[in-house]
Design a protein around this nucleic acid. Structure first.
Lengths: 396, 396
DNA sequence: CTACTTTTTCCACTCACAGGACAAAGGTGT
DNA sequence: ACACCTTTGTCCTGTGAGTGGAAAAAGTAG
């Protein structure tokens, strides 16, 4: 099949496409209930969308008491590629136009090998998904990278953990390779968009999405839109000082949140504890694998290991302190915790909640849910698909 | 004169009114250069505005080489009332529709006397301005209060320093008394709007405005619009923990920024230092007045008093630490420092800058100006006038 | 005074859209 | 099976917003 290249011709069409994306197949009448257009106007626009083949007929709709209506839906052959590049692994997924995941691959990887090597791997993964019959090509792709991005151009800027990526034209290069439109954003922002689209944040306009993985970042959503800041580095909370004169951090300062709690810090602390024989559980795991990661700490904690639990609680407290400050400042309607360390589960969440509810003022915390992300590792790729679909489903 | 009650009939008219507000008298042709409307359409809308008397003719425009054009301007009889209620004083000002201050009164006051007493005083001040011939009535009023506000209703909610104001229908009551539309907001947000309209933030879309007065708050502007948070308490940074296990704060926690640095904290620390004879300068001032305030500390510092300078520097460091975190999180294009303690001037600013530039990442601080507000005590009332004019100059 | 600019007014034309009339297609009750 | 109601889809005309060209009006420059 030749790929779709059509785009909505006006704001009405864009609106309809998004409704079909978020609400699945719909009859013209149902669409009419949502858009405040006259029936005639609506019919014209739907017909034009059918002509472009972005939208296709989809059988009869359920009866609402009178003449039955014919459903329309987004073309089921449309395919989006969602790519979530982490520090140590990549997720690549294929979705349909309704952003349902049709196939998903995760592979270990090292961003530090540079953009060329990484994208070679990503393209191979995409090819594998194609080969398995899920897609014949892609109509758009969203890419998440673990660092700040100059959003309009789709170019990473001065990413601390990705030497070699600074200024690399990710958007242009991938658009060339894939032969489709591409949008690039920070991985944390994509996670926020994912949870907003299909996760816990569906109904909230203003929220924070804290991702604790190898590093720590925070997606900021204002009025339903991701806020990226003046230079695209908004949400970079990993280097906020959490402990005065604390641990030295790679950034040159001391006491950064990331230096005290993150996937990397947790692995280091756990290894230390194991070597000092503070925890039999961790020590035996260290011997077995040669190294420890956040997963081991989670397992040890689940087995009731006191040292592991302490590590999690301590980290949660630090994180909670920082989040408490952000809550006072930003007054969000929801805080989502996600990323690799969500495996630490309720222990972590409880520690964070305790700090936030204790330190922030009642008016800000009164009705503030603090919850774990619902989508786990798929949040990023769903967010990526959402990013490109928002772009494509907007007036040209 | 009867007050204007007309409102713009559509978005074009609203746009034109704001252009005339921000740019002063303009010819039709100049307006046409700014709005992307056909000449005919523009002429129609301007004529309708002239009919409503919101806009009036204003002589010939400067020649641009051909036929000279007739200027139009906002009706010079329009009057807005700007009220900025602080913890210990009120500012009341009258502006024209271009938000130029025509008269301004400041009086000491105590918010804790409750809304009825305070508004009695405010109305008396407004009457005084009227009596001096500056206004025959008001076409709108903006009110700033030192606490969180449920913005759509114009009602303070759970304001810590304003017992007795919780739930008081400020907007409705004043609208009744003044006989004109009223909008209510947090005083810090108004300061931000003031600096945005006529001060240092004229060209910046995303910025923070930190007000250090009796308490500490922060106005947040996102994409040119004030962000108020889910419950209207966004920017409430006074109770972010600045010092672990620090001074006890009125809010029940310890180490809040406000407990360590604010007008109140500074006065207390200065008094302590004077009593302990650490500073001759402060001691003599304490003897002379019986009490010390931020103004005394500023004067002592200006005279070279080491203790006063230390107090300022220490406070600036604490504030700078908190701001550094906010800068990492929010990635603003500008940070404005304002409020009562701006009298502390460059010593304070230097301390804040040092902390922010040291603690935040280069990408966020690279091109980040941190400056004192330009408008001083008029920022609040200008912001108040701006608030109500934004409301009135929007489609009905 | 002439040539050129700029501004303003006038007018015909396009276009988006609303909303009513009507037809089509289904349910519901007798 | 039939009449009647409801919902849905289509057609068509009216309306108001807005565009853009032509020409008049009112200047400036030489």
């Amino acid at each position: 099949m030749r790929r779709m290249t059509a785009r909505p011709a006006n704001a009405h069409q864009a609106r309809l496409l998004r409704l079909l994306r978020d609400g699945g197949p719909n009859s013209r009448a149902q669409l009419g209930d949502q858009v405040d257009l006259s029936r005639s106007k609506l019919a014209v626009e739907v017909d034009r969308l059918l002509e472009t083949r972005l939208v296709v007929a989809d059988g009869l709709a359920a009866s609402r008491g009178g003449r039955r209506s014919h459903n329309v839906r987004l073309n089921p052959h449309l395919r989006f590629l969602g790519v979530d590049i982490g520090a140590t692994s990549v997720d690549v997924a294929v979705t349909n136009a309704e952003l349902e995941i049709l196939g998903h691959i995760n592979q270990p990887m090292d961003v530090r090998e540079g953009p060329v090597a990484v994208f070679e791997q990503v393209l191979a993964m995409a090819a594998k998904l194609k080969a398995s019959g899920l897609a014949e090509g892609f109509d758009g792709a969203g890419i998440g990278v673990p660092g700040p991005v100059r959003f309009p151009e789709g170019v990473p800027v001065a990413p601390p953990i990705m030497p070699g990526w600074d200024g690399f034209p990710v958007r242009e290069a991938l658009s060339q390779e894939l032969g489709c439109p591409v949008m690039v954003d920070n991985d944390v922002n994509l996670m926020a968009m994912g949870e907003q689209h299909a996760g816990v944040a569906r109904t909230v306009a203003d929220f924070l999405c804290v991702k604790i993985g190898t590093g720590i970042g925070c997606g900021i959503v204002v009025g339903g839109e991701v806020y990226r800041g003046t230079t695209g580095s908004a949400g970079d909370i990993g280097h906020i000082q959490a402990v005065p004169d604390g641990r030295p951090c790679a950034c040159g300062n001391r006491g950064c949140l990331e230096a005290h709690f993150s996937g990397a810090a947790l692995a280091r602390d756990a290894t230390e504890a194991a070597q000092q024989r503070l925890s039999a559980e961790l020590a035996s795991r260290l011997e077995a694998n040669g190294t420890l990661s956040a997963v081991d700490v989670a397992a040890a904690a689940a087995a009731g290991d006191a040292t592991a639990l302490d590590l999690i609680r301590e980290g949660g407290n630090r994180t909670g302190q920082v989040i408490a400050g952000l809550v006072s400042f930003f007054n969000p309607g929801l805080v989502v915790i996600g990323g690799g360390v969500t495996g630490l589960g309720h222990t972590l969440l409880a520690a964070i909640r305790t700090q936030v509810y204790r330190q922030s003022l009642p008016l800000a915390t009164g009705n503030l849910p603090i919850v774990l992300g619902e989508l786990g590792p798929t949040a990023g790729v769903i967010g990526a698909a959402r990013l490109i679909s928002d772009h494509l489903f907007s007036p040209a």
